[in-house]
């Protein structure tokens, strides 16, 4: 059964028609057309699909898209200001916090949420906040360093 709804993503309204069981990651990629959010394990484990729903990190592979009607969704595309990268995104480049890049959107979204709630975190807080994000290139040290650099501004 198709449900005609409006999703609000990165401050824009997107009219879409979704099946009742559509996970948010599929709605974002297939219907909204934003490809930054990645589908990794598809089992709520790896965090590649991390987005913000009303400013809170959520695994979009296991959250129903229709549950976000009436909420604000923020994806990795919403972190930059046009072509200007956020301080966090620039820090990932500076520190080499990217290897294959597949986990990077989820890492950025989780780290962005951390810095909003805790602007001056310890490295342990950074590692805990990224606990739900797996990097199979195992580049964790550079990712943690990037978040610390962004926090120090």
């Amino acid at each position: 059964m198709k449900h005609a709804v409006t999703l609000r993503v990165n401050g824009m309204d997107y009219p879409v028609e979704l099946e009742g069981g559509t996970p948010l990651v599929r709605a974002l990629r297939d219907h909204v057309g934003l490809m930054g959010t990645k589908e990794g394990c598809d089992d709520c484990e790896c965090g590649a699909c991390m987005v913000l729903v009303d400013d809170k990190p959520v695994n979009s592979c296991t959250y129903l898209a229709l549950q976000t009607v009436g909420s604000e969704v923020t994806t990795v595309e919403g972190l930059a200001d046009g072509d200007t990268l956020s301080a966090l995104q620039s820090a990932f480049l500076d520190q080499g916090g990217v290897q294959c890049g597949y986990c990077t959107p989820g890492m950025l979204v989780s780290a962005h949420a951390l810095l909003r709630r805790s602007p001056d975190p310890t490295e342990e807080e950074v590692r805990l906040a990224l606990g739900g994000n797996l990097c199979r290139c195992t580049g964790y040290q550079k990712i943690a360093s990037a978040v610390m650099q962004a926090a120090k501004g």
Binding site: C44, G47, P57, N59, S110, A129, G132, N133
Partner: peptide, 9 residues
């Protein structure tokens, strides 16, 4: 429980 994301939902 889980991660930050799991604890949020």
């Amino acid at each position: 429980v889980g991660s930050h994301a799991t604890r949020n939902v």
